[in-house]
């Protein structure tokens, strides 16, 4: 060891290390994949990470039944297939599934409303894990409650498996709109915000001071086209999750690459036009009003 070698101990699982990985994914696209081959297509297209799951949300919605954590063998196969971070989903409140995912060495756990919730009152105590967690939120109060439980990345929920961007836009606007209002509030009003949003006052004060969430905020649920990605990035999302939108489309590989480029060059309409040309059919979408189950209503 050279003279510049430190002798101090290393610390794993710190907040900075957990939030730091989310920071490194900013500006990128995280893609849902169900096989090692799909994971390779995602990596080839420039995904910054993949989400390993058994069925994409559109199929979960169609098939019904209880949706659970994926088969560890499938997750392992995907970890072997790609070099980029691999995320996986656990049911809301199902800390045993999260423990299994941590033991598999996944890089992020998504405590996800897309799976069937395991606990109707409690989310996972995410502070007790070394692996970082991402959670969904439909509004600022929900986002701050998840952060208070230890989430290191927030994604607006949208409505997964629909190919319809309207809910994602509603959730993003709600979260970012309330952040803007809170930065204008005086000290006394912050207590009222904490009460209204059912969120810890300390986090409300932090939002007021910094004008942003304490963790990166990404967007999920309904992104199907390059223009969808540009829309949510312009609204203030820092990265995008694409679930069914890629592998339920007519020609996944070029669409995946186009969404990556659109997310990077989100402020360049000519570039969005160029990458959107000749992609074939997007996934068939669903009207929100005609849904039997709204996944975004899961979580508390």
């Amino acid at each position: 060891m050279g003279q510049n070698t430190t002798s101090s101990d290393s610390q794993i699982g710190t907040v900075r290390v957990k939030r730091g990985l989310a920071d490194m994914l900013r500006g990128g696209v995280i893609m849902d994949v169900v096989t090692p081959d799909e994971a390779k297509i995602a990596e080839d297209a420039g995904a910054v990470a993949v989400m390993a799951l058994e069925r994409v949300p559109a199929d979960i919605r169609r098939d019904g039944g209880v949706a659970r954590m994926s088969d560890p063998a499938m997750i392992d196969g995907i970890q072997q297939a790609v070099t980029i971070p691999v995320m996986a989903k656990a049911r809301i409140g199902h800390f045993a599934e999260a423990q299994v995912l941590e033991s598999l060495g996944v890089d992020y756990v998504d405590e996800s409303e897309v799976l069937t919730p395991a606990d109707e009152a409690h989310h996972i105590d995410k502070w007790s894990f070394t692996v970082p967690f991402v959670c969904g939120a439909t509004n600022l109060g929900e986002a701050l409650r998840r952060i208070s439980e230890g989430a290191c990345m927030i994604r607006s929920k949208g409505e997964a498996g629909t190919g319809n961007i309207v809910e994602a836009v509603r959730h993003l606007r709600s979260i970012l709109g309330d952040i803007r209002k809170i930065t204008q509030a005086d000290q006394a009003e912050l207590f009222d915000w904490a009460k209204k949003l059912q969120a810890p006052i300390g986090l409300i004060q932090e939002v007021a001071e910094t004008g942003s969430l304490p963790v990166p905020m990404f967007c999920a649920g309904g992104i199907a086209t390059p223009a969808d990605a540009s829309l949510v990035m312009q609204l203030g999302a820092e990265a995008v999750f694409v679930g069914s939108g890629i592998f339920k489309s007519e020609d996944p590989a070029p669409r995946a690459k186009a969404i990556v480029e659109a997310t990077t060059h989100f402020q360049d309409p000519a570039m969005i036009a160029k990458v959107s040309s000749g992609l074939g059919d997007a996934m068939p979408g669903l009207e929100i009003g005609e849904l039997e189950t709204k996944l975004s209503e899961r979580g508390w």
């Binding site: 610390q11 710190t14 290390v17 990985l21 490194m24 060495g105 996944v106 890089d107």
Partner: peptide, 26 residues
């Protein structure tokens, strides 16, 4: 290693008097 092995530690850096906080992520 993977994310669960990501770590922080203080670094001794040539030319710096105080240690630098090193954040190592994958």
């Amino acid at each position: 290693g993977r994310q669960i092995a990501s770590f922080e530690r203080d670094l001794i850096v040539e030319g710096l008097e105080e240690p630098f906080p090193g954040v190592f992520i994958r």
